[in-house]
């Protein structure tokens, strides 16, 4: 049984923070787990910071607002600076290192810098940096079966944008295969996993 995990995703509005959170939430739904997805809302989202709390558990979720995340996904420097200290000891921080030059000075958490915005640009996946980070997140904490996440991607990409589905899958795979950070992957791609 997968562990309870409280995830905080944060960045600029428009970086795909809420979408990335939705992918994680859908994966939880597919695996029939308890989950909650709570966005920040209101004018602060317009051009300001956007963040999103996702809780996955096998028990009913208490507070859906993640104040002390097990995992922080930070996609810009202000978000990283704001939330890095809140991560629980032993927790993990996944950083878009294209957008963040200064990493937190903490030795009680694992920090995984991934140049996801750059990787997205290089692979023709503009706008999908957050999905790359979801792939990395899955690689590092194995919060679900990768097939559930693939299904979540299929569910989350609206029919009108079906042409973006392969790109989303590719972005996810890039994150999953990213080995920066020296950690041992806790899950690997299933045999029948195929991109495009």
């Amino acid at each position: 049984m997968a562990p309870t995990v409280n995830i905080l995703l944060a960045g600029f509005g428009g970086q795909g923070i809420l979408f990335a959170g939705k992918l994680i939430a859908y994966a939880g739904l597919i695996e029939k787990r308890e989950l909650s997805w709570l966005p920040s809302y209101g004018p602060e989202m317009r051009g300001g910071t956007a963040n999103c709390s996702v809780c996955l558990s096998d028990e009913p979720i208490g507070s859906p607002l993640v104040l002390e995340p097990d995992v922080l996904v930070a996609m810009n420097q202000p978000s990283l600076d704001k939330f890095a200290d809140a991560v629980v000891p032993g927790g993990k921080i996944i950083v878009d290192s294209t957008m963040c030059q200064r990493l937190p000075e903490r030795d009680d958490v694992d920090i995984f810098p991934v140049p996801s915005t750059q990787l997205a640009e290089d692979n023709g996946l503009k706008g999908l940096a957050s999905v790359i980070l979801v792939g990395k997140l899955l690689r590092e904490i194995g919060f679900c079966d990768p097939r559930a996440l693939d299904e979540a991607i299929a569910k989350s990409v609206p029919p009108k944008k079906a042409h973006l589905l392969p790109k989303n899958r590719k972005a996810f795979e890039i994150g999953m295969l990213n080995e920066d950070g020296e950690s041992v992957p806790v899950c690997s791609l299933p045999d029948d996993w195929a991109v495009e």
Partner: peptide, 10 residues
């Protein structure tokens, strides 16, 4: 309240 309105759950 705003939290219940904005959050997603199964």
């Amino acid at each position: 309240d705003g939290m219940l309105g904005q959050m997603m759950e199964p």
